[in-house]
Amino acid sequence: MVLSALLNFFYPPPASLVVKVMAVIGFASLTNAGWMETKGKHMQYSKLRNVGDGDGSKGKITEKAKVPSKLGMIVLYTPAFLAGVSSFFLFPVTDLRFNLLRSAVTVHFFKRVLEVLFVHKFSGSMDLEAMITISLSYLASASTMIYSQELVQGLPEPAIDLKYIGVPLFLVGIGGNFYHHFLLSKLRTGAEKQYKIPQGGFFSLVICPHYFFEILGFFGICCISQTMYPFAFTMGTTFYLMGRSYATREWYKSKFEDFPKDVKALIPYIF
């Protein structure tokens, strides 16, 4: 009964073992990464890159190979963007849903590349290991989303068509994410490097509204696709960003005595 209900919203699970394994690995690894964030084991980028890092001894930093932050962020997103672009040449004949899906994936990562080049301000460096790991994970997720959509070409559509809900969800998500990234970029002017409490937009409600809108955008992609892999990836991403936003809020609380107590981590009034 549960399976039949799900099939109203999703295509049948693909026959591809690769896609099934990628869905399980992606969900499990992202969920675990989110849990690790709450425990102080952070992905080594952004303001949290050295918080809790070390060999197990509190405050002891392990020396690792570094790259400039801006270069590292470009490498994070470019391969996934190129995977999206390549799909238009690899699969030239597709239906509307496939074109919407791969367009959304491509636009998502293209926007990130543009933000690195023209919006974000960077200081310091990024761990080379983290750069490679995250870049490969983005490439794998983008490629698998597109490939899983190719596998359902020609199959009957789900009984409930969500793609026309997914498109505005994606656009609101990507727009809200960009707007709050823009606000973050305006916090520091000139040669300033110190962090400040973000202001404006949804920052009055949550400390990571850019994560909230990123999740919304991925749910838009889920609705466009209506295949299992994007759903598994989105749920894993949601749990990861919940952990990341919790850690970010704790960081701000530790750095600023005047941090507003009513500002939540990710979900207004709730979390």
Rank of each mutant, 00 (worst) to 15 (best):
T78W: 09
L136C: 13
C208W: 01
I267C: 01
S29Y: 05
G220S: 03
E257M: 07
A140C: 13
F91A: 04
L6K: 05
F9V: 07
L183K: 14
C208H: 11
L6M: 13
L114Q: 02
H42R: 05
Y164Q: 05
V93M: 06
A28Q: 01
S141C: 10
A65Q: 05
G34P: 11
D262V: 02
H108F: 08
D53S: 08
Y164A: 07
P13M: 11
F178V: 13
Y240I: 00
F231W: 08
Y77C: 14
Q226P: 03
E192K: 02
F122P: 07
Y240C: 06
A80W: 15
V51M: 02
K60W: 03
K41H: 11
V105M: 14
V24F: 13
L155K: 12
F9E: 01
L187V: 08
D127I: 01
P13N: 04
I132A: 12
F203W: 02
V24I: 09
L17C: 08
T144Y: 04
R49A: 00
V105L: 13
P79L: 14
F27D: 05
N177R: 08
I25C: 13
L171E: 10
F178L: 15
K121A: 01
G173L: 14
C223S: 13
N99A: 07
L216M: 15
I215W: 12
L266P: 04
M22N: 08
E257Q: 10
S46F: 06
G201T: 04
Y211S: 12
L48V: 01
V18E: 09
Y45L: 10
Y246P: 00
Y252K: 10
P268E: 09
I134P: 00
D127W: 02
N32E: 13
D262T: 03
D95S: 12
P79A: 14
Q199P: 00
F9M: 01
G220K: 12
K196E: 05
G26Q: 01
I197M: 01
T133S: 15
M36F: 05
F239K: 12
S185H: 09
V152T: 15
T144E: 06
L169T: 12
I146Q: 06
M235R: 06
L205K: 15
L241K: 02
P14T: 15
K264L: 10
F219R: 00
Q194Y: 00
K66E: 08
M131I: 03
A130C: 14
Y77S: 14
S46E: 08
M43W: 00
C222R: 07
G166T: 12
L117P: 05
Y240A: 03
K186V: 06
I174D: 08
T227H: 06
T238P: 07
K58A: 13
